[in-house]
Measured scan of single mutants.
Amino acid sequence: TIEDAIKKLLKLAQKGQPYTFGDFTVTSEEEAKKLAKWLKKQL
């Protein structure tokens, strides 16, 4: 689910690992949080 993807994304971001989700490449926890907010709006 999208919720699971968001959780995984935040965990990876906390470890400092870049994470690619579709067109987004997230390289920081701050970016992960922005992406998570955006994804929730898409639901």
Rank of each mutant, 00 (worst) to 15 (best):
G22E: 10
F21K: 01
T25R: 04
A32T: 06
L43I: 08
Y19F: 15
F21H: 02
K15F: 13
T1N: 08
F24C: 13
L43E: 03
V26H: 02
E30S: 11
I6N: 00
K34A: 10
L10H: 01
K40S: 11
T27S: 06
V26D: 01
E3T: 07
T1P: 08
E29Y: 14
Q14Y: 11
A36N: 01
K41N: 08
V26W: 06
Y19I: 14
E3P: 09
A5E: 08
A5W: 15
K34E: 07
D23E: 09
P18M: 08
D23S: 13
K11R: 10
K40L: 14
I2Y: 09
W38K: 01
K15Q: 10
E29F: 14
V26G: 02
E29Q: 07
D23V: 14
Q42S: 07
T25C: 10
K15Y: 10
A13N: 03
P18H: 08
Q42I: 11
A5L: 15
T25D: 04
E31I: 12
G16C: 15
I2M: 05
K37M: 11
D4P: 03
Q42L: 12
I6W: 07
T27V: 11
V26F: 06
W38D: 00
E31M: 09
K40G: 06
K15I: 10
T20P: 11
A32D: 01
E30P: 03
A13H: 04
F21G: 02
L12F: 12
I2S: 01
I2H: 02
E30H: 08
E3Y: 14
A36G: 02
D23H: 09
L10R: 02
A32W: 13
L9E: 00
T1A: 10
L39M: 04
L35V: 02
E3F: 15
K37L: 13
T1S: 08
V26C: 15
V26N: 04
P18W: 15
T20L: 13
D4T: 07
E31C: 15
D4L: 10
I2E: 01
L10N: 01
K37Q: 11
E30R: 07
K11P: 01
K11V: 10
K7S: 07
K33H: 10
G16A: 06
Q42Y: 10
K7W: 11
Y19W: 12
F21D: 02
L10I: 09
E29C: 15
K33S: 05
D23C: 15
T20R: 04
L9Q: 00
L10A: 02
G16E: 04
P18S: 07
E30C: 12
G16Q: 05
L12W: 15
Y19L: 09
K11S: 10
Q14I: 13
L12C: 15
G16K: 03
L35G: 00
E3Q: 13
L39A: 01
I2A: 04
E30G: 04
K41D: 10
L43N: 03
Y19R: 02
E31S: 10
T20S: 06
L12P: 01
Q42V: 13
F24Q: 03
